[in-house]
Design a protein around this nucleic acid. Structure first.
Lengths: 264, 264
DNA sequence: TGCTGTGAAAACTTTCACAGCC
DNA sequence: GGCTGTGAAAGTTTTCACAGCA
């Protein structure tokens, strides 16, 4: 598509595929490493190797951003770092709140990749009064009673949920009500949010299960056990699962993740 | 992204699409919850809502596993739990080693989702002698000198890397040399492994960057319709049940709405 | 009647391969 | 010669829509 007339990568031809967006951070990381080593230019082949993708894909991805390379030479590292950062919105500073300061929350708070990439931990929040005031990664934990105030004052629009699954939806509701419009959820539960709010999910056990699937394939090349358990007697349809049949979300590229409605 | 070089044109393989495999854990979790509530059967619509996907996709996914439902009725919860578990290889016990017991490693060690789903933390390993012997989540940390021995003795084939990026590749190499064939990498670096070894990556900063991308888009559009910054401080904690629908990326509407990317 | 299972269409993503510029 | 940028082909995933069975 985008037939002819592509003379202005300007800042207007949006329409970057989701799969490409998901890889931009990868390229950015590889480029940052090159930049630190003062490498001036890099070819699609080299950069692709550093990012762990193939070069054709990388070139195609970059073509959605514009023509930032030089034929016969490659890409200017600094320039590309800037362009991708801008595309990702990392030239501005994003205040982030982390809710739930257990081991995971603490790990996130101390994660270097945060600060170094346009994100700033605006606050650590926990419901346990015993945690209040305690510094974690150099930042004092605040009590969840103040959540709304903190979000409003700092203009936070991104929230990270690292609480137990049981309270994740409640925390999510409060975050959203307070104005957060992007949520990164580490709790193993499906969050339901209003339209316009973005949720991304990271689930450790899901990743492991996917690995187990492949691992099983490797080990059992021979379909030793195939016969599953016996069927079941049809049971009478049971207690309606309080469905809110309406929605169904869907999007996402690489690995699935999609929010939805939960039965109450 | 899974790196499974799983091409098997050979003997009657069931060839389940990767996208489907990635969703099976989601279904399994939703089904487990239903099972705990003793719900006997569930329809594709209900289960899809609970898992956060749409029902057509769910039915298609299940069709790759076989015909486990009953027309006019739905799916038997217990039976499906068993089938999916078997498909994912969770009917067997997978010993896992976690290398790098910082906050993240500790969080993983204590993560309930592990134990409850066919995984067993066989060992926690750290290079710091001061950590050796110290119990984390009830399991004593072992020194990395013993890594090979531990892997061999327990027949570990899945390893989790939660070390700093700088040593991740070295740890990976040792794991692979010792016999591990599946790796879950939390270090923000690209690991290179020999053919036949699977690597999955979880990177917090990448997820955040993707959120920032969409967040930036939201802020930049606004033809006039969108909930303006809800400056309503102190919002009632009352669950906004009413307007809640399925979450979604900033774009995409209810049903067959035109997806695509919003003209920024 | 209600809901699964599934071909077929549509949408999206990756890969190929080569024209075009340095 | 070397390498980018990109149409077009190939492959994958999602969605539609309905036949068919309990």
């Amino acid at each position: 598509m985008a037939t002819g007339r592509t003379h202005r990568p300007a800042t207007r031809s949006r329409g970057i595929p989701e799969a490409t967006v998901a890889r931009l951070p990868l390229y950015l990381r590889a480029l940052t490493a090159l930049s630190e080593r003062s490498v001036p230019t890099v070819s699609s082949e080299e950069l692709a190797a550093a990012a762990g993708v193939n070069s054709a894909k990388l070139r195609k991805d970059f073509s959605y951003l514009g023509s930032y390379g030089t034929r016969g030479v490659g890409y200017d590292v600094e320039y590309l770092v800037y362009q991708i950062s801008r595309e990702l919105g990392l030239t501005q500073d994003w205040p982030v709140v982390i809710v739930g300061i257990g081991n995971l929350g603490a790990a996130l708070a101390g994660y270097g990749g945060f600060a170094s990439r346009g994100f700033r931990v605006a606050a650590l929040i926990d419901a346990d009064p015993a945690m209040t005031g305690k510094p974690v990664a150099g930042i004092p934990v605040q009590h969840s009673d103040d959540l709304e105030k903190i979000i409003a004052e700092d203009g936070v629009s991104i929230g990270v949920i690292a609480t137990p699954a049981g309270v994740a939806q409640a925390v999510c509701d409060r975050l959203v009500a307070a104005g957060v419009t992007s949520i990164l959820n580490f709790a193993p539960t499906v969050l339901s949010v209003p339209d316009g709010v973005d949720v991304r999910k990271v689930d450790l056990s899901i990743e492991l299960q996917i690995l187990a699937f492949h691992e099983q394939r490797k080990a059992g090349e021979e379909p030793g056990d195939e016969q599953p358990a016996p069927p079941q007697a049809a049971a009478p349809v049971a207690p309606p699962v309080a469905t809110r049949t309406t929605a169904e979300g869907g999007r996402k590229g690489p690995d699935g993740d999609v929010p939805a409605v939960m039965p109450a």
